[in-house]
Write a protein that binds this DNA or RNA. Structure first.
Length: 883
RNA sequence: GCCGAAGUGGCGGAAUCGGCAGACGCGGCGGAUUCAAAAUCCGUUGGGGCAACCCCCCGUGAGAGUUCAAGUCUCUCCUUCGGCACCA
């Protein structure tokens, strides 16, 4: 007796909308809870089943908190600037804002169809001028504090596409789309000085309730402690400064390496070496970072002809240039200690350079080393430092260097400044203008020259700076991006002088850096948000989102938050107290192997778990006989089960389930609209929460939906029966109160799968009773309501209560009913369970022992043997050791 | 290569302050209901031995160890997934 979700769910959605059930205001005296979802990019393909996973989880917590008396802020919005809409515009001429609005409509409809408890009156859209005006405002604050600056940075410019590409869009120097050549071109870019906050971004992670993400961020920031040391360059006044974390190995520095892109590289090269050095530097410059590192190739480099002086040994050591030293890290130059660094060792072998042992594992010295010894040990061949353990010597060496003026302590970071401009149309305009020298009107084709050295901030009153309308979104031959062609927008005159607007736009990260703040007070036109709104809701108590944003988004948002903190706009140093990443939902497909002839025709089928197919030298798979093999795939609906195992319906071979990221090519994509239509939103929500632990990667199994739906149908059937107002019998009461307890605790700990399992057990129990106790049904419906809100509302009114169930208090439980006076204790003999005895929960050991030894099953194994020892844990176990 | 997470039935998973491995669900098998099917309900379902749903043995990636007791703790190894990738 299934209920009709197609009637029930829309009806309650309309009710919630009409009653404004989800609108929140702060009520005096209530605790608050801010449950935040990472807002989506509204793509053209709509919601996929991965989205509702995290959203359902926060929705459950939000509803649970609300029923527990909290004021809950649970908002949703759109991260709507981005490349796909711009690409679509290039192809079709449709304005990106039109595409974006259309996609937002779809997303909003889909989310509403899932019954999420969002306060839609707080919806934000990063492309709305009322929103990005404040994104621009924050940029101006960054600019004023000197945290936004311009620099020449090499980019991947693809002349054929007329656009700048991201590193991952370039493969072997060709564009991913269309295989056009890509050149590295220095381009003026805006950068944000996130490095100024590196120390705090690393240190402030400490108290946060975040998962492994904290470590990822620390690794990304890459703080290290060491020293800068100056190496005098021979025949020059200059010194070459290096950064090292191993000042204890200074005596072992037998050569130096300077990055090919270091400012001094060409300067120090000797005349006879200059050409070679220049050629090497030129080649290195053309390589992308990926190429330089991807192959993990053999070390290359050239001798510059210059020498430096090791300040401690006072030996002359050669200076090489090599691309294994990065210009952007440290000082762009290193002292090479081949005895104690693997890369330096490899390079030294290649170029036949001296390897000297200065750290010994045991204090004895060796004449030659087979490999670099990179661990800590004891100093040798290090003058007065001999015999010092590495850690101690590092401290002493830094003090020594500082005393002599040869070097200084230094903390270094891997983190680099954030390139904050994109040569795109569909992004926030950067609110900066530059003076222009011109002999006429640059909008009418007069010559002009823009003085990029003198950036001028717009007045705050001039915000928002909107995008101009464009007819044509095609990229052009100007790396400055499509806005450079919007002459009417770009140039303007003030007080008789000409100015040009910045034509770069902000990256997609910008809008998502502070959206959680705008939700607080989204319609405020005079401020980002009011102080009252901030104090009412911040900080975020639970932040849910994919771990693909573990580093960049979360680091950038924290950076902006700290800047806002420093200028007094926010009052907490960190915005997100607790962070949880929901696991990816994978698509499932079933593999079998097809042995094929030259034309691809099927010769015979092999089991999907066959070990016979092996990678063929010419690519693909083949058998030992040389026959070619192809992987073939079936969907969950296509397979058949024989003897409990999945098989191919025609060929009968076994098929093997393989879970992979959902993709069209694999045919394993699931559309939530279909699920809502066929099973209902509540079923989708319950199923996704029941699949397994929230944070784990899980394969989607359409068949699993059945179980969730049966559970809901069963609830409906139970609540539809005549209800008995008498208190439930004791076993029912015990189970009921334990279930409420478990569901309460599991929701707090985000263990939704086991909470659902507990509710299923209770539902199965109630289903088997002759009379249905009202108390049990009502409490169960309340427990279910955060998971399956539509059905819960329906059943709540069905049992005679008033909507909305969201305003009903969360059910309590009686702790006394959650504990047993008499418990069944398993009895082990020599560690194996041989019987069970009923005991009072606090029975004494001697009582327990007597009961156990009287048990027949136990006696069989103890008969005629001496009891050597008894281990008794009251209420848990009794173990009798005989021998 | 480095960092992180994880390996439990045919499948998703449960049980980690060490204490009955396999809760709950999917799938399978048997039955009830039905003219029949779907749906629903009941029973059963880790592997093996046995006439036997008595009982016994084996079993949480592999191997060792600690313990009365190990899926859980320690060590070594294997595999899978995710991230980073010459960071001095």
């Amino acid at each position: 007796m299934a209920y009709d979700h197609r009637e029930v769910e829309p009806r309650w959605q309309q009710y919630w909308e009409a009653q404004q059930t989800f609108r929140v205001e702060r009520r005096p005296g209530r605790p608050k809870f801010y449950a935040l979802d990472m807002f989506p990019y509204p793509s053209g393909s709509g919601l996929h089943v991965g989205h509702p996973e995290g959203y359902t989880a926060t929705d459950i917590v939000a509803r649970f908190k609300r029923m527990n008396g909290f004021d809950v802020l649970h908002p949703m919005g759109w991260d709507a600037f981005g490349l796909p809409a711009e690409q679509h515009a290039i192809q079709t001429g449709t304005h990106p804002s039109a595409t974006t609005q259309q996609n937002i409509e779809t997303f909003r409809r889909q989310l509403k169809s899932l019954g999420f408890f969002y306060d839609w009156s707080r919806e934000v859209d990063t492309t709305d001028p009322g929103y990005f005006r404040w994104t621009q405002w924050i940029f101006l604050q960054l600019f004023r504090k000197g945290l936004a600056f311009q620099a020449e940075i090499p980019v991947n410019w693809c002349p054929a596409l007329g656009t700048v590409l991201a590193n991952e869009e370039v493969i072997d120097g060709l564009s991913e789309r269309g295989n056009h050549p890509v050149v590295r071109l220095p381009l003026r870019q805006w950068q944000l000085r996130i490095t100024a906050y590196a120390e705090r971004l690393a240190a402030d992670l400490e108290p946060l309730d975040w998962p492994e993400t904290k470590q990822k961020q620390r690794d990304w920031i890459g703080r290290s402690e060491g020293a800068e040391v100056d190496f005098p360059i021979l025949e020059r006044d200059d010194a070459l400064t290096v950064y090292t974390t191993r000042p204890d190995t200074l005596y072992g520095a037998t050569y130096m390496v300077i990055a090919p892109d270091h400012a001094l590289t060409l300067e120090i090269a000797s005349a006879d070496r200059l050409e070679e050095v220049r050629a090497y530097a030129e080649a290195a410059r053309r390589k992308s970072d990926m190429e330089r590192t991807a192959l993990n190739k053999e070390k290359t480099g050239v001798f510059t002809g210059a020498y430096a002086l090791n300040p401690l040994t006072e030996q002359q050591i050669p200076i090489f240039t090599a691309d294994y030293v990065l210009g952007a890290y440290g000082t762009g130059a290193i002292m090479a200690v081949p005895g104690h660094d693997e890369r330096d060792f490899e390079f030294a072998k290649r170029f036949d350079l001296a390897v000297v042992e200065v750290v010994s594992p045991d204090g004895t010295t060796r004449e030659s080393l087979d490999a670099a010894f990179v661990e800590d040990g004891v100093a040798v061949r290090s003058g007065a430092f001999d015999g010092q353990p590495s850690a101690e010597m590092r401290r002493n060496m830094i003090a020594f260097l500082e005393q002599r003026g040869l070097g200084r302590r230094k903390v270094n970071f891997k983190l680099r400044d954030w390139v904050f401009s994109r040569q795109r149309y569909w992004g926030e305009p950067i609110p900066i203008v530059f003076p222009v020298r011109t002999d006429g009107d640059p909008r009418r084709g007069a010559n002009f020259e823009i003085d990029y050295q003198t950036p001028i901030a717009l007045e705050e009153s001039e915000l928002p700076l909107r995008l101009p309308e464009l007819e044509d979104f095609q990229p052009g031959d100007d790396p400055h991006g499509p806005l450079a062609r919007a002459l009417e927008w770009r140039f303007f005159q003030r007080d008789g002088r000409w100015f040009a607007r910045e034509t770069n736009t902000m990256p997609q990260w910008a809008g998502s850096c502070w959206y959680y703040l705008r939700y607080l007070d989204p319609r405020n036109e005079s401020e980002m948000f009011s102080r009252e709104a901030y104090d009412a809701w911040m900080p975020v108590d639970l932040y849910m989102g994919g771990n693909e944003h573990a580093v960049l988004h979360l680091l950038y948002a924290r950076f902006w938050h700290k800047v806002l903190f420093d200028i007094g706009v926010v009052t907490h140093p960190e915005p997100f107290l607790k962070l949880v990443h929901q696991g990816l939902i994978l698509g499932l497909a079933y593999r079998w192997y097809a042995v094929v002839d030259g034309a691809g025709g099927l010769l015979r089928a092999l089991d999907g778990d066959s070990a016979e197919p092996a990678p063929a030298p010419e690519g693909g798979l083949a058998l030992a006989t040389g026959e070619r093999v192809e992987e073939r795939w079936l969907s969950e609906q296509q397979i058949e089960t024989r003897d409990g195992r999945p098989v191919h319906p025609e060929h009968g071979v076994r098929v093997v389930a393989v879970a992979e990221k959902m993709s069209k090519s694999r045919g394993n994509v699931v559309n939530p609209d279909d699920v809502v239509r066929d099973f209902g939103a509540d079923t989708l929500r319950v199923y996704e929460m029941f699949m397994g632990p929230l944070e784990q990667v899980k394969p989607w199994q359409t068949s699993g939906l059945q179980g969730a739906r049966r559970f809901l149908d069963r609830l409906h059937a139970i609540a539809s029966r005549p209800l008995d107002d008498a208190p439930p019998d004791e076993p029912t009461a015990k189970l009921l109160h334990r279930t409420v307890k478990k569901v309460t605790e599991d929701i707090e700990a985000l263990r939704f799968n086991t909470a659902i399992s507990a509710m299923m057990i209770l539902a199965n129990h109630l289903n088997g009773l002759r009379v249905t106790p009202r108390d049990a049904v009502e409490r169960l419906v309340l427990c279910v309501s955060p998971f399956a809100p539509h059905l819960a509302e329906e059943l709540w009114t069905l049992v005679g209560r008033r909507a909305s169930i969201l305003d009903a208090p969360w059910p309590g439980f009686d702790p006394a009913l959650c504990e047993d006076e008499v418990v069944e204790v398993p009895v082990q003999v020599n560690g194996k369970v041989r019987g069970k005895v009923q005991l009072a929960k606090d029975a004494t050991e001697s009582a327990a022992r007597d009961a156990a030894l009287a048990d027949e099953g136990v006696r069989r194994f103890t008969e005629g043997k001496a009891v050597r020892k008894v281990v008794y844990v009251p209420g848990r176990i009794l173990n009798v050791i005989v021998g």
